[in-house]
Amino acid sequence: DYEVGESVTVMDGPFATLPATISEVNAEQQKLKVLVSIFGRETPVELTFGQVSKI
């Protein structure tokens, strides 16, 4: 299970290999909103559970 505030690594898509912090969890739809730090700015990205891995 994923929790808000948890650190994960993006495994898929254009942000693969980047660390991210979970900002929202939708367990019903198996989706997460995460904040990816790009060029010093936090960018919100919506991903599925399968696109991230716990650190």
Rank of each mutant, 00 (worst) to 15 (best):
P14Q: 08
V45M: 08
T17K: 10
P19Y: 14
V8T: 01
F39Q: 10
K33P: 00
G5L: 03
R41Q: 11
L47D: 00
M11R: 09
V10I: 15
S7Y: 11
V25Y: 04
I22L: 03
E42F: 10
G50Q: 12
D1N: 13
G5R: 03
V45I: 13
I38C: 10
K33Q: 09
F15K: 01
L32H: 00
I55D: 09
E46S: 07
K54W: 05
M11D: 05
P44H: 14
I22Y: 01
M11Q: 07
T9W: 15
T48A: 11
G40H: 04
V36G: 01
F15Y: 14
K31I: 12
L47R: 01
F49V: 04
A16K: 12
A20E: 00
A20F: 03
D12G: 08
T21L: 11
A16Q: 08
D12A: 13
L18V: 05
G13W: 03
K33I: 15
A20P: 00
I38W: 13
V52A: 04
L18T: 04
D1K: 13
P14R: 08
T9N: 07
K33V: 15
S7M: 15
P14S: 05
F15H: 06
P19S: 15
I22T: 01
G13S: 03
G40P: 03
T9M: 15
S37Y: 13
F39H: 11
G40F: 04
V25Q: 02
Q51W: 04
Q30Y: 08
L18H: 10
E28Y: 10
G5A: 03
E6Y: 05
R41I: 14
Y2M: 04
M11F: 05
V34W: 01
P44M: 15
E28H: 10
T48K: 09
V52G: 01
V36K: 00
D1P: 14
G40V: 03
A27P: 10
V10T: 02
D1I: 14
V8H: 01
I22G: 00
D12T: 14
E46V: 09
I55L: 12
M11Y: 05
V10W: 02
S7H: 14
V34A: 07
P14N: 05
K31W: 11
E28A: 13
A16R: 12
L35M: 12
E46P: 04
G5K: 03
Q30M: 11
G50I: 09
I22V: 11
A20K: 02
T48W: 11
E42K: 08
L35T: 09
L18F: 14
E3I: 13
S53D: 06
F49I: 04
V4C: 06
N26I: 09
A20V: 05
E24I: 07
K54D: 03
K33S: 07
R41M: 13
K54C: 04
E24R: 06
V52I: 07
D1E: 13
T9K: 08
D12F: 15
T43S: 08
T17P: 07
P44C: 15
V45P: 00
E42Y: 11
D1Y: 15
Q30S: 09
V4Y: 04
V25R: 03
V10C: 04
E24L: 07
K54L: 06
V25N: 02
V36H: 01
E46Y: 11
I22P: 00
P19T: 15
E3N: 11
L35Y: 09
T43K: 06
